[in-house]
Amino acid sequence: MYWPEVRTMGFDPFTELRRLQREMNRLFEGFGEAEGGGPPINVWSGRDQIVVTAEVPGVDPKDLQVNVQNDVFTLEGERKPEEVGENVVVHRAERPFGRFARSIRLPYEVDGHRAVAKYRNGVLTVTLPRSESSKPRQIAVTAE
């Protein structure tokens, strides 16, 4: 946990409260904290890569945006509502729609340039290779 930076200008108690709440959530959930609503995500951590899967049914892959910055993974997109046309009676409307964006902190830094994202049957799978700088290095101990 880090100390909140002291802001003298434009202090908004509500923003501060929300930030505090986020920090508390993070404290309880560990690094796997996801912000915002949106599609459910699973994160798998391997030795040399991280695999993130998300359930995003009915989304055109063109409308999906995956961003990686250091160890933060962001998924953005839009689910379009069902086009029902005119003269219809809607009995049920449970499927969520609208814009979504969610970020999640990964266990280590990844190389976004070598990331591969695939979309199949409404499931997005993103493979993120570990960045060279975050790879553990063994240091040989020499006896003098």
């Binding site: 996801a34 699973n42 798998w44 951590s45």
Partner: peptide
């Protein structure tokens, strides 16, 4: 859906 082998699940959303 096949879950990746040799990986540890660190966050489960679904």
């Amino acid at each position: 859906e096949t879950e990746p082998t040799d990986h540890e699940l660190v966050y489960r959303g679904y």
